[in-house]
Nucleic acid binder design. Structure first.
Lengths: 270, 270
DNA sequence: ATGTGGCCACCGAGGCCTATT
DNA sequence: AATAGGCCTCGGTGGCCACAT
């Protein structure tokens, strides 16, 4: 048992991200019913109301599903961030959990600011050119332990994607419909060799910025490719087929034979 | 003892806002040292970083100073919002606390969106014309009690104003300096007769919007006038003269003779 | 100097329109 | 129809400038 994530094997590091994501998915499942209600009926003083809704709902869902907090804070553009002790079979690790909420009418990709990118990315565009963008998320945050020795808190990056569509003349008076909640665990930079060894093996794609206008570069994460690289890193909580107001409680994983699985899980009400 | 704020006298309602503000001031005082550190050294990927800093710091300061929570949430543009039970001598009242964070290089006024305005406002501009803006904050939120009877949670509006200035070539490597933290309690709409009986008696002034461009109307709250109307509604936590990194712990109030007072108060570290 | 008004600047977050395949 | 690329819109937040007192 140790406390330094840098001594973990890659598989152990993957496991940390997996268990982190699993808990977040459980929290979102549990909160999905209320999230849907609030998301669909909250009036829109402006078009950008959905952005705030996604942020608030993510916070409400996650703040009740925390672990042993570390008394350390920092401020910035990440929507939800907590420094905490994460218990794992390999040891108790200090972790900086970073969660960003997204609201979108698309359901196949997410756009990341460089400051939200945890891995040095490189990818080839359709026209053959290769582009790259360095990670803007620090791999860990160093804290001073009581004895003075440095303690590094690993950074884990999660994205919660609220897929919705606007409604007009809805009989129930809803303003929009929340269709799915996607949850992505984008790998830590140390896993680059596994997930983006070269420009042709990656789930990254061209960003949403406009090069012609000289905008800050952004980058996209494609759901299908992330899922192909590692099934459990792309979770989907869907309201389609739901009969009780909650999303369907299914966890995507991979079995020993390498096949993708979808396991139902139990959850409690809030 | 009752639970309906509408049965309170105006003085009792004032007392509710006063005790709410008092606790928030204590929380900000206690967090002022860390707030200053984070605010001054957090790098600015963009100019708008201060906005996010103010929001995050306000949340960090207040979330540890809460009272008996009510399991009810809603989402929207207000930075910090909590529904809770507030204990007072007149009874235990359900309350919707709304706090908005502001970052500014000015220290004499705050701009409010209509959605942040708790009172129907009317004021006369320098050129003699009278303008008005209706409250955009609901006076209370109705919830259904277990027995089915409606229960109204009073709304209380607080603004936390981070007054700062940018720094260049600071020897200590700071990017900006946090000078003061102002905290305002803008009165509930039912107190309009006391605070804004007519366009000439008010702490409101023209908003920051551009009429010429047809922008959404906003409105300003002037510190000096709010303070003149009710001293304790304008609190100032200043770093000027501070020797320990915290702001000076002073609470502004009014004594029996009607004179403004500044009482020091004790606080704990976090 | 301070108190008031108010024009704009900036920039974060996505909607959407186009090409391809 | 689905995948990619990328231009541009919208709107929240204040910086700042200009007068007036």
């Amino acid at each position: 048992m140790h406390q330094d994530y840098r001594l973990l094997t890659d598989d152990e590091h993957e496991a940390i991200e997996k268990q982190t994501l699993r808990m977040i998915v459980q929290a979102l499942q549990q909160y999905s019913k209320e999230a849907k209600e609030i998301f669909e009926v909250t009036p829109a003083p402006s078009k950008s109301e959905v952005i705030v809704l996604a942020e608030d709902l993510t916070q409400y869902a996650l703040e009740v599903a925390e672990v042993y907090p570390i008394n350390k804070r920092y401020a910035g553009f990440i929507d939800y961030k907590r420094v905490r002790w994460l218990p794992t079979p390999a040891g108790l690790f200090p972790q900086v959990l970073l969660v960003d909420a997204k609201a979108s009418t698309e359901n196949g990709r997410d756009t990341l600011q460089q400051s939200q990118l945890p891995m040095d990315a490189e990818y080839r565009k359709a026209d053959g050119t290769v582009e790259q963008l360095r990670a803007g998320v620090f791999p860990h945050m160093v804290m001073a332990s009581v004895t003075g020795q440095p303690l590094a808190a690993v950074t884990t990056s999660i994205f919660v994607h609220f897929y919705y569509r606007d409604l007009v003349d809805d009989p129930a008076g809803r303003i929009r419909e929340l269709l799915d909640i996607y949850v992505l665990a984008v790998p830590h930079n140390r896993l680059k060799a596994r997930y983006n060894p070269n420009p042709d093996a990656t789930f990254f794609g061209a960003g949403k910025h406009s090069p012609a206008r000289g905008e800050e570069p952004r980058i996209r994460v494609y759901f299908t490719r992330l899922r192909a690289a590692c099934p459990w890193r792309l979770q989907q909580l869907t309201f389609a087929g739901s009969v009780n107001g909650y999303t369907l409680p299914l966890w995507r994983d991979i079995d020993a034979a390498g096949n993708e699985t979808r396991d139902p899980f139990l959850y409690l009400s809030r």
